[in-house]
Simulated scan of single mutants.
Amino acid sequence: MSHQDTELVNVSHLLRSRAELGTAFPRILGYFREDGVKSIHAIEEAFRTRNSAALVSPAHTLKGESAQFGAYRLSAMAEQIEMTARRCVETREGPDELIETVVALRPCFSETMAMLDRDASPLAVRRPATFGRRAETPVPGFGRAN
């Protein structure tokens, strides 16, 4: 299965995490952004130097933190990097097979953060839009002659 087939962000998981974190959500999201940038940089650098062992820790960190926010695609990509790097360490091989995933990691992180930032915005509308539809529970007698 291609990573593109994996859901970018699972909204129900994200909403559950948001509810659990409450007012700390924007702060924790900021930590995730900082850690994510560092992890991706470390992954790219380890890949450039063909250092399979150096891929494991930042990929593991990115996998767990992404999962916390329901960022399924990013988490799956990080997991593939981590598990492949572990195998490469055991077999003493270079991580060349990871090139497509490593190259796609930063754009996926950017797309994920854009979606998470929209949800974290205090200006974001958190209820379903009713534009063009009748309200589900109209107030009797309000706005129309009975």
Rank of each mutant, 00 (worst) to 15 (best):
M77W: 01
E45M: 06
A145V: 10
E44M: 07
F109M: 07
S12Q: 08
L105Q: 03
G132A: 11
T84R: 14
Y31C: 03
L8N: 01
F32S: 03
E65N: 13
T130S: 09
M77E: 02
A124E: 15
T137M: 04
S39W: 10
N146E: 04
E82V: 04
P107F: 12
R127C: 13
S17W: 12
P58L: 05
R133V: 11
R87W: 04
S2P: 10
S110M: 13
G70L: 15
E90A: 15
C88P: 01
M113T: 06
G36M: 07
T137W: 09
R18D: 01
L116Y: 04
S110A: 14
P122V: 00
C88E: 01
L116S: 07
S57R: 08
T49N: 02
A104V: 13
A135E: 13
E79L: 14
K63F: 01
E136G: 06
R92Q: 12
V37G: 07
A19I: 12
R27V: 11
S75E: 07
S17P: 10
S66F: 00
A135F: 13
E7R: 00
R50L: 03
E44T: 02
A124N: 08
L15W: 09
G70Y: 13
T6Q: 07
C88H: 07
P128K: 04
N146C: 11
R127N: 14
F47C: 01
T49I: 10
V102E: 01
R73A: 02
I99N: 04
T91E: 13
N10E: 11
A129N: 14
F131V: 09
T49Q: 05
R127I: 15
G30K: 00
P26A: 01
P122A: 05
A19D: 08
L8Y: 00
S75Q: 15
E90S: 15
R33I: 06
V103Q: 09
A85K: 09
E93H: 09
R134S: 14
L74G: 08
A104D: 05
R92H: 15
A145E: 12
T23D: 11
L98T: 00
A114V: 12
C108Y: 00
M115E: 15
T6G: 04
L116Q: 06
G30F: 02
L123N: 08
E90H: 13
H60V: 12
E20V: 08
E65W: 02
A54P: 03
A42I: 10
Y31H: 02
G132F: 08
E79G: 11
V11G: 03
D119I: 14
T130C: 08
C88A: 04
Y31D: 10
V125R: 04
L105C: 07
E65V: 11
V89R: 12
G94P: 00
P58M: 05
S57G: 05
P58A: 05
E100K: 09
E79P: 01
S110W: 11
E79C: 09
S75V: 15
N51G: 08
Y31R: 02
I40M: 04
T137N: 13
C88S: 09
R92G: 12
R27G: 09
V125E: 15
I81E: 03
A24E: 04
T61D: 07
P95A: 04
A71S: 14
G132T: 12
R50D: 09
P138K: 14
A114C: 08
D119Y: 14
E97K: 13
G22Y: 10
E7V: 10
F47E: 00
A53E: 03
P128W: 06
V139G: 06
Q68A: 12
L8S: 02
